[in-house]
Simulated assay, not measured.
Amino acid sequence: MAVSLDDVLQQLQWRYATKKFDASKKIPESTWRVLEQSLVLAPSSFGLQPWKFFVVTDPELRQELVNHSWGQKQVVDASHLVVLAIKKGINTEDVDRYLARQAAVHQVPIENLQKYGDVVKGFLEKPPYPLDMDDWSTRQVYLALGQLMTAAAMLGIDTCPMEGFNPAKYDELLGLPTQGYKSVVVCTLGYRADDDKYASLPKVRYETEEVISYL
């Protein structure tokens, strides 16, 4: 059943970049599993999913990450901390891995996917325009971030996307380089504190006519 139109607008109005979380409130496991799946089900170009999402649960590690997050306390006070990372240097081997997964899920011979695979590999090896593949992968990660935040809003879960952190330090502390990944953005999730003054501020947005054009 589709969500009502009013409910969608209400929750999008309700959400904001939460500056202060209530550290005593935790997201229920059943709710988190839905949010987890919102990341798994996120769209990506060619379906390649050039990413991995690291959910940091160790309290001491999260406390240490505050030092590399411009002192932003959301990192420790939020219920969940997700580090969204790209797979560095995505290449034709990643395409082969995805094709194998597609063949298994759709129950078709992998040979049937060869033409599609050649198209994707051609894009990676000789892009039709100047393109840094890590930059391309980063843009895919932001699709996942948007889906996570929207799903959270629909469930009444607060979020705060964060680029204010030191990626190199995060990578070092989380051991990402040895796994072939690089952090690009962070998202904290939980419940807003009662005294977060930003919660009640009206959204500052340009008028619809200024940002939407019909051609």
Rank of each mutant, 00 (worst) to 15 (best):
V204K: 15
P59I: 03
T208R: 11
K52E: 13
K126F: 01
G146E: 12
P177R: 01
L61Q: 02
N166V: 12
H68V: 13
V95C: 07
E64I: 03
V120M: 14
A152R: 02
K203D: 00
E125G: 00
I90N: 06
K73S: 13
E209W: 00
L12M: 04
S4F: 01
C160Y: 05
Q74F: 11
C160D: 02
G190Q: 06
V186W: 07
V105K: 10
L81P: 07
Y214K: 01
S137P: 13
K25G: 11
Y116N: 12
F54P: 09
D171C: 06
K25D: 10
G190M: 10
S24Q: 09
S4E: 07
D135C: 10
L9I: 12
E207Y: 00
A85E: 00
P167R: 04
K182D: 09
V141H: 09
T138R: 12
W51D: 05
A2R: 14
L124R: 00
S44C: 03
F21I: 02
A168M: 13
A104I: 02
T159R: 05
A100V: 11
S200T: 10
K88F: 00
V8Q: 11
Q179V: 01
L61M: 04
G156N: 04
H68C: 10
L124W: 00
N166Y: 09
L41C: 00
W14S: 14
N67S: 14
K203S: 01
T150W: 08
L176W: 02
A104H: 08
G156H: 03
